[in-house]
Simulated scan of single mutants.
Amino acid sequence: MDKIRAFIEEQFLIEFDDDFPEDSNLFKEGVMDSFGYVQLIRFLEKEFTITFSEAEMTGNVLVSLTRMQEAVAAKLAARDGATA
């Protein structure tokens, strides 16, 4: 999950800390726009070999680092459980 944090901090030139917690909404804070969001989704899908549905991408699921990490963890658990 550190890869997600590193990608966001590098891509959007921010640093998560006490003033900018991991549960900050990246859209509302003006950090991420729709183009950046598409790049982020592509990174997550490629890096973790997962796929997000349209509902997940448009349903405010992936708006903060915390929620992204939870979504990726759930996808990985479902995928690994299905292949076990």
Rank of each mutant, 00 (worst) to 15 (best):
N60C: 10
R67D: 05
F52R: 09
I8N: 00
F52D: 04
L26K: 03
V38Y: 08
L76A: 12
F20P: 00
K28G: 03
D80W: 10
M32N: 04
V31H: 05
E9K: 02
G59M: 13
F27R: 04
L26E: 03
Y37Q: 05
Q39T: 05
S24P: 03
D19E: 14
S53K: 14
Q11H: 08
G36V: 02
R79V: 12
E22Q: 12
D19F: 13
V63L: 06
A6L: 11
R42V: 15
F27S: 02
S53C: 10
F12G: 02
I14N: 04
K46G: 04
L44T: 09
F16A: 07
F20L: 13
D80L: 13
E47R: 06
Q11I: 05
K28W: 05
I8Q: 00
G36R: 01
G81F: 11
K28D: 15
E54G: 05
V61T: 09
K46D: 13
I4G: 08
I4E: 09
F27K: 05
G30R: 09
V63N: 05
E29Q: 14
R67P: 00
F35C: 02
E29K: 14
A77P: 02
A6F: 04
F35P: 00
F35N: 05
E56W: 06
R67M: 06
T49G: 03
V72A: 00
S64M: 02
S34I: 04
E10I: 01
Y37E: 05
A84L: 10
M57K: 15
A82M: 12
E47N: 07
E29L: 09
T49F: 04
G36A: 02
G30L: 07
F7M: 06
E9R: 01
S64E: 00
E10M: 07
E10G: 13
A84V: 08
R79E: 12
F43C: 10
D33C: 08
G30Q: 09
I14E: 02
F20E: 02
D18M: 14
N60D: 15
V38D: 07
I41A: 07
S53R: 13
L40Y: 05
R5H: 08
F43Q: 11
V72K: 00
R79F: 10
Y37A: 07
E22S: 11
M1R: 03
F12T: 00
Y37T: 06
K75W: 11
S53D: 10
P21I: 06
A6R: 12
L26M: 14
Q11T: 11
E10R: 08
Q11R: 13
A74W: 06
L76P: 07
